[in-house]
Simulated assay, not measured.
Amino acid sequence: MKVLGIETSCDETGIAIYDDKNGLLAHELYSQVKMHADYGGVVPELASRDHVRKIVPLVERTLKSAGLGKDDIDGIAYTRGPGLIGALLVGSSMARGLAYAWQKPMVGVHHMEGHLLAPMLDENAPAFPFVALLVSGGHSMLVDVKGIGNYVVLGESVDDAAGEAFDKTAKLLGLDYPGGPLLSKLAEQGHAGHYKFPRPMTDRPGLDFSFSGLKTFAANTIRASDGALQTHANIALAFEEAIVDTLLIKCRRALKQTGRKRLVMAGGVAANKRLRASFDLASKKEKYTVFYPSFEYCTDNGAMIAYAGCKRLLAGERTDISARSMPRWPLESLSAI
């Protein structure tokens, strides 16, 4: 089955074609980062308009890249939610139009399920069951994954997500948007031991996350500093170490609680080099295996939507053409396949 995947949940327009026999055939991605940088964050109305401008050319380019026509496509998958409602509507409208015009079945995919299954696109794919750490600009979540659609949320962010805390702290340091990768680059110049940041919510039981207080601690530290570049680098390092340590502590707890020996990390923050290095070291010492998607599949992309959609279409799942987009959509409400 060849499935055309459409991702428009936020500020990336992603289109891909996945074949259940031959894997990923083609994928295209357009990022709106430069447009939103002038505003220091995503402007929903501008994001929606840009999706409208880019989505049709990207679909045409993806089909051409795969050497396929509409008759070769067996189904359409699109991000139904969660996300920015205006952006979601652009993708769902495109999916509906193509499904109707081409007379193909379609399925709405949960954005976080797409991220959770992104490592399946690589050759070294994890086997079920496993614990998944989903870390992005909008979500920090630990999930016990027994199979596709069989999810139990173990813990999630109660305020700022990890990626959001990265971007906000980077802005306090005077870095451009999106600040997370720039903060990590600055942290490479930092000297360890100059600052000690708290590891939020690790002094109590539970698997929920809270990074708002850490961001406030960073803001107070920055205000009290001398503003020198080296000082900012030291602060960036201490902040990044606090995020990584917190995620690692919570993952240890989740693995112990569930008895799993496999950990999947996905989402934009999963591209962080310090995070990967720390988890690789810990996994070797503690005898579990950690899996990451390729860097190109960490951020929002159409490939993960095409893959998840293909699995659900093969299982007989269909989304009615009248179905509404869902800016909020609990992961545990999905059906198991």
Rank of each mutant, 00 (worst) to 15 (best):
S322C: 08
T289L: 10
G227Q: 05
V264M: 06
A236W: 00
I305E: 12
I235R: 03
A218K: 09
D280C: 04
G316S: 08
R312V: 03
R318C: 04
S212A: 15
S294P: 10
T289G: 04
A266R: 09
E296Y: 07
A323D: 15
E240G: 02
P327S: 07
D226V: 03
K284C: 03
L263A: 10
R253H: 13
E296W: 02
F217L: 02
K256V: 08
C310F: 00
D208S: 10
R223T: 02
K215T: 02
A266V: 09
T246H: 11
R260E: 13
F211E: 12
A315H: 12
A308D: 09
D208H: 15
D300F: 04
I249Q: 13
R253W: 14
H232K: 15
A303N: 12
T289Q: 14
A323I: 06
F279G: 05
F209V: 07
E286A: 05
S225E: 06
L275M: 15
T319I: 07
R262W: 00
A238Y: 00
F239E: 01
L207P: 13
A224N: 13
S210E: 13
E317H: 14
M326I: 01
A236T: 00
A308Y: 04
A254K: 07
V244A: 05
S283G: 09
D280Q: 15
T231C: 09
D208L: 10
D208K: 02
A218L: 10
F211Y: 15
A308W: 03
I321W: 14
R276I: 01
A270Q: 11
E286Y: 07
E332F: 09
R312G: 02
C298V: 07
L263S: 09
H232M: 10
A306L: 07
A233P: 06
I222S: 05
E240T: 02
L237A: 04
I305F: 08
R253E: 12
A315P: 14
L263I: 07
A315K: 12
A282Y: 03
C310L: 05
I305L: 13
L237Q: 05
N301M: 12
T258I: 05
S212W: 13
Y297S: 00
D208P: 13
A254N: 10
A228T: 15
A242T: 02
A271F: 14
A228Y: 00
A282E: 15
K215G: 08
D300T: 05
L248N: 08
S278F: 08
A228P: 00
L313C: 08
K273A: 14
P293Y: 14
L313V: 05
F279H: 08
A228S: 15
Y297F: 15
L275V: 04
A236P: 09
T299Q: 10
R276G: 05
N301E: 11
E317K: 12
T319Q: 08
L214K: 00
F295S: 13
G259R: 08
E240N: 09
L207I: 07
L237T: 02
T221L: 12
A242E: 03
G259A: 07
K261N: 13
T246I: 06
L314S: 11
G259P: 11
F211A: 09
K311T: 02
G213S: 10
A323C: 11
E286I: 03
E332I: 01
L247C: 10
S278Y: 15
V269D: 04
A228D: 12
P293I: 03
T258P: 14
G316R: 08
F295T: 07
A236Q: 01
S322A: 13
S212G: 10
E332W: 11
N220R: 13
